[in-house]
C-alpha cells in the first residue's frame, strides 16, 4: 500500500545511491587498498596477507576464541532469557515495565561504570584471565538484546496456542519445543545476531577480564593499529567484516529452510 515507486530508476536515484556508496563502501575499499600496500610505498604488495598466512596459528586461535565466546554468549543469553521474557510478555502491568527496564539497563550503561568493580570481584572468584570470565562479562552486557527480542516474540504469540497444546495433553517442555519455539526462532535469530556482534566485537571487556591471556580477535588486531602497521590491521579488519556477514547469510538461509519445512513463512 505504501510501496515505493516500482518504476525505472532515474538518474537522480543513481546519484543518491552513489552518495551512499561513497559513505559506506568507500571505507571498505580503503581497507582493501591499505591491506595491499606497504608502508611508504605506492605499488601493491601481498605482504600483509602473507604475514597473516605465516602467522595463521595465532590468527586462527584468536578468531576461533572470539567466535567461541560470541556463540556461547548467544546460547547463554537464549537460555537465561526465555523464561523471564515470557513472564514479562504475559504480565501486562506497570510493575513488570519497571522490571523490564531494570533488566534491559546493562546494555545501555557504559560498561566501564560497572566492569572495573566486576573485575575486582572476578579476581576474588578466580575468574580473571579465564575464558569463562570473559564469557560471563560479555553475557552481562549482551543478554538484554536477546531479552528484548524474545519479549517482542512472546507478545506476538497468542496464549491460546499454549492452552490448546496443554489441553491436548502436551507437557510444558513439549509445548515449548513444538509450539512456542518455532514462533520464537526469528526473534531469537535477530536478537542473537546483536548479542553475537556485541560479544565478538568487544575490545575493552575482553582485554580487562581476559588480561591478554584469553585469545581474542580484537586483542590481536589492536596492537597493529597502535603500532601504525595499517596494512596488517586493514587485512585483519576485512576478515572482521567478512566473518559476521558470512554468518548472517548462513543463518538467514538456515532459518528460512527450517521454517519452510514446518510450513511457516517469515
Amino acid at each position: 500500500m505504501f510501496e515505493r515507486s516500482a518504476g525505472p530508476a532515474q538518474r537522480r536515484d543513481y546519484l543518491r545511491l552513489a552518495a551512499i556508496a561513497g559513505l559506506f563502501a568507500l571505507p571498505v575499499v580503503m581497507l582493501l587498498f591499505y591491506s595491499l600496500s606497504a608502508r611508504g610505498q605506492t605499488e601493491l604488495t601481498l605482504r600483509a596477507w602473507r604475514y597473516l598466512f605465516a602467522e595463521r596459528r595465532n590468527f586462527v586461535t584468536a578468531l576461533a576464541s572470539s567466535l567461541g565466546y560470541g556463540f556461547s554468549a548467544v546460547i547463554v543469553a537464549f537460555f537465561s532469557c526465555v523464561l523471564p521474557a515470557k513472564a514479562i510478555a504475559r504480565a501486562h502491568g506497570s510493575h513488570t515495565a519497571a522490571i523490564e527496564a531494570v533488566l534491559l539497563t546493562p546494555a545501555l550503561l557504559p560498561s566501564i561504570s560497572f566492569a572495573i568493580g566486576v573485575h575486582q570481584l572476578f579476581i576474588r572468584a578466580g575468574l580473571v584471565d579465564t575464558w569463562v570470565g570473559v564469557l560471563l562479562i560479555l553475557s552481562f552486557v549482551s543478554y538484554p538484546y536477546m531479552l528484548r527480542a524474545l519479549i517482542a516474540s512472546y507478545e506476538s504469540i497468542d496464549p491460546a496456542y499454549e492452552q490448546c497444546a496443554r489441553n491436548l495433553g502436551a507437557g510444558a517442555l513439549r509445548t515449548f519445543l513444538r509450539v512456542e519455539l518455532p514462533f520464537l526462532l526469528p526473534g531469537a535469530a535477530a536478537g542473537g545476531s546483536v548479542v553475537f556482534l556485541v560479544a565478538f566485537s568487544d575490545y575493552f571487556l575482553v582485554f580487562l577480564i581476559g588480561g591478554g591471556i584469553v585469545p581474542a580477535f580484537t586483542s590481536y588486531l589492536v596492537p597493529f593499529i597502535r603500532s601504525a602497521d595499517y596494512s596488517i590491521a586493514s587485512a585483519l579488519s576485512i576478515v572482521f567484516l567478512i566473518v559476521p556477514i558470512g554468518l548472517f547469510v548462513l543463518q538467514d538461509r538456515a532459518l528460512t529452510l527450517l521454517l519452510q519445512r514446518r510450513g511457516m513463512s517469515i
Partner: peptide, 14 residues
C-alpha cells in the same frame, strides 16, 4: 557490523 576498533582504524586511515 564493524567493531569499534575497526571504525577507529578507518578514521585513522581516512
Amino acid at each position: 557490523i564493524l567493531p569499534h576498533v575497526v571504525i577507529g582504524l578507518i578514521v585513522l586511515l581516512g
